[in-house]
């Protein structure tokens, strides 16, 4: 049982690497160079390494966000929208508060949390009130708010001097401190890790954690024994959307310094795979986030050095998605498990 728990994700990762290598090798004119940059690039110097860690920060948040929803047995497919829109609203607020105070950074994070949380809460309410699957509604609401976010960046809140659709830069004072300059790694990494560990503890040792687990595993059982299933679902969705949005805001505070159109580029969505890869174990999310960030950094470096199309990474991420819930190792045949009906 535990064997399979450990081996299956490793197997997925190995398969993903192999497929990645094959595609790179087949499509590149200088396969050896490409493979070297792709796989070893992120480790070639401290700058690249720091950037890779930094790239895993948003994934830690969105992975945790997905994990929170999964922990209560709901699906949040609107992570991308919550991540993107929550951060944009946060940025706009940040532009109008006094900077260089810790309290304003916190305030901005709370704002993004609420915005993202409200978006996901909406789909949870749709599920409870109208029985409409949160899968589809969260995705659609997320998409709608990606468009709305695009509109805000391109229209009313666009910095007229910027070459692309983006807000003004935030003051440096409000941003998160760097850890490994000149790379992008910032304090957000620590915040993300801490949140993961907190949630890990909550799941294992709190009343709420027990209720989440029970609702996920058997909502009918939970309801019969007095657990307020609806409340748990709402709470899980709210937290999930909120954490995703905080992830987006941390990314802006730590890396971008302003909201740029399309800055989310799949980070929200990938959170789902990040969480699934480690079987929704919050204590391990940082590892799978690192794996995704590694692919992404490798792709970026390879495209810089040998002009490989970075979309390969998306392809590989997709394949990881496909394999992440598969069971490669054969389970014992469960014969004769027929109950005495």
């Amino acid at each position: 049982m535990t064997h399979r728990k450990v081996l299956s994700p490793i197997f997925t990762v190995v398969v993903a690497f192999l497929i990645c290598a094959v595609i790179l090798g087949a499509t590149s004119r200088q396969p050896r160079e490409t493979l070297r940059w792709f796989f070893l690039g992120p480790f070639s110097n401290l700058y690249y390494f720091g950037n890779m860690l930094a790239a895993s920060v948003p994934l830690i948040f969105t992975g945790l966000a997905a994990c929170i929803a999964f922990s209560a047995g709901v699906f949040n497919l609107g992570l991308e929208g919550q991540y993107y829109f929550g951060a944009i609203v946060g940025t706009i607020i940040a532009l109008s508060v006094p900077t260089s105070r810790l309290s304003s950074t916190l305030f901005v994070l709370v704002v993004s949390f609420s915005v993202g949380g409200l978006l996901s809460l909406a789909s949870a309410l749709l599920k409870l009130e109208f029985g409409f699957s949160e899968l589809i509604s969260s995705f659609m609401i997320g998409q709608i708010f990606i468009y709305v976010g695009d509109f805000m960046l391109n229209g009313p809140f666009r910095d007229p001097e910027a070459a692309l659709a983006a807000t003004r830069y935030l003051d440096e004072g409000i941003g998160l401190a760097k850890i490994l300059p000149p790379s992008n790694l910032h304090v957000g990494y620590v915040i993300g890790l801490t949140l993961c560990l907190v949630f890990h503890f909550v799941r294992k040792h709190s009343v709420m954690g027990y209720e989440f687990k029970t609702v996920k595993e058997n909502p009918r059982f939970a309801k019969i024994h007095g657990i307020k299933v609806e409340k748990i679902w709402l709470l899980a969705m709210l937290l999930s959307g909120g954490v995703a949005a905080v992830g987006g805001m941390v990314e802006i505070l730590g890396v971008y310094g302003r909201a740029v159109r399309g800055f989310s580029h799949g980070n929200g969505f990938n959170g789902i795979a990040v969480s699934l890869l480690v079987r929704n174990d919050p204590a391990l999310i940082f590892l799978s986030a690192l794996f995704f960030a590694y692919l992404e950094s490798g792709g970026e470096i390879a495209s810089l050095m040998v002009q490989t199309p970075p979309e390969i990474v998306r392809l590989v991420q997709g394949i990881v998605f496909c394999l992440v819930t598969a069971e490669f190792l054969f389970r014992r045949s469960e014969r004769d498990a027929d109950s005495v009906a």
């Binding site: 027990y210 687990k213 595993e217 059982f221 007095g226």
Partner: peptide, 22 residues
């Protein structure tokens, strides 16, 4: 019994405490 009275995914402990844990 199997779908309502028990949470088959859980342990004996988790099933036993559902009325008192809080």
């Amino acid at each position: 019994r199997l779908k309502e009275a028990l949470n088959l995914e859980g342990s004996i402990l988790e099933n036993a405490i559902v009325n008192v844990y809080r």
